[in-house]
């Protein structure tokens, strides 16, 4: 046994009675093994190359996806902004709908004035404001008549029925807005918002806001539109209620006169 271990495999085989392996065969065997190894190595190299190409493709794909994600995120942000805008628009439309509904839901003059006060207070967010009507004088001019004073007492409001700004708004029919509201204190001689109550080109009054309930830093263009639209509805509501009240009063007077005439002729 110790002999087998010490001899080489050829000698060991020869010693056991097997045919000795020729060196040429051994070389061929080794060459075949080498060839096989080279094939395996080549396949490994090809596989590695394929992996590297796949890796490259994946890197490119990841970069593409990252780019797409950035795009999607940007779109998402844009949609979120748009959603907020639409929500705000919805809110404004709801306010306008409810306000116009309330303004035109009655022909009672006092109720119309109450609706105007509520709308200006709760929807516009004004804290100190007045509504002044413009009444024509026989000489062809006009004089102011205070209708609503909120956030200040009636006496104080009557002392300053029409500020110079309101005077100009009534004369020109062009609304006045102070864009920057930050740091502006309530000043009865200088409203921050002054909107004419107009029916087409006829100005029947003016809404003057001296201070906002909400600490708005500035007025946006949508606020201007909202004020102008509501002022228009307020104007028609006031005008209709006034006409209705006047006609009702006249009707009562006429009816009283007719009753008087009828009763006189009957008694004769």
């Amino acid at each position: 046994m110790a002999r087998d271990d010490e001899d080489g495999p050829i000698e060991a085989a020869a010693g056991r009675g097997k045919a000795p392996i020729e060196p040429e065969d051994r070389i061929e065997e080794l060459l075949a093994a080498r060839q096989e190894f080279l094939q395996v190595f080549k396949r490994g190299a090809e596989f590695t190359e394929e992996l590297m190409r796949e890796n490259e493709r994946l890197r490119y794909r990841v970069a593409e996806l990252e780019k797409n994600i950035s795009g999607v995120e940007a779109a998402n942000r844009s949609f979120a902004d748009r959603y907020v805008e639409i929500e705000q628009e919805n809110n404004n439309l709801l306010n306008i709908y409810v306000a116009t509904y309330q303004l035109h839901s009655t022909l009672d003059y006092d109720e119309v004035l109450r609706a105007i006060t509520e709308v200006t207070l709760n929807f516009i967010g004004a804290e100190i404001f007045t509504v002044t009507a413009v009444e024509s004088t026989p000489r062809g001019g006009w004089e102011p008549k205070l209708l609503v004073a909120e956030g200040l007492d009636w006496g104080t409001a009557q002392e300053v029925p029409v500020s110079p700004i309101a005077h100009e708004v009534i004369e020109t029919g062009v609304p006045h807005f102070v864009s920057e509201l930050e740091g502006v204190d309530a000043d009865l001689s200088s409203p921050v918002v002054c909107v004419p109550l107009k029916i087409k080109e006829l100005t029947i009054g003016v809404l003057s806001i001296y201070k906002f309930l909400r600490q708005k830093k500035r007025l946006a263009s949508v606020d201007h539109e909202l004020f102008t639209l509501l002022a228009g509805h307020a104007a028609t509501a006031i005008f209709a209620a006034k006409l209705y009240t006047d006609s009702k009063r006249k009707l009562t007077t006429i009816q009283g006169f007719i009753d008087l005439v009828t009763s006189s002729s009957t008694s004769e």
């Binding site: 709801l94 409810v98 509520e118 709308v119 709760n122």
Partner: peptide, 12 residues
């Protein structure tokens, strides 16, 4: 108590 405000909240 304000019909205007009530209407607004109900509508919302």
């Amino acid at each position: 108590d304000s019909p205007t405000m009530r209407h607004l909240i109900v509508f919302a």
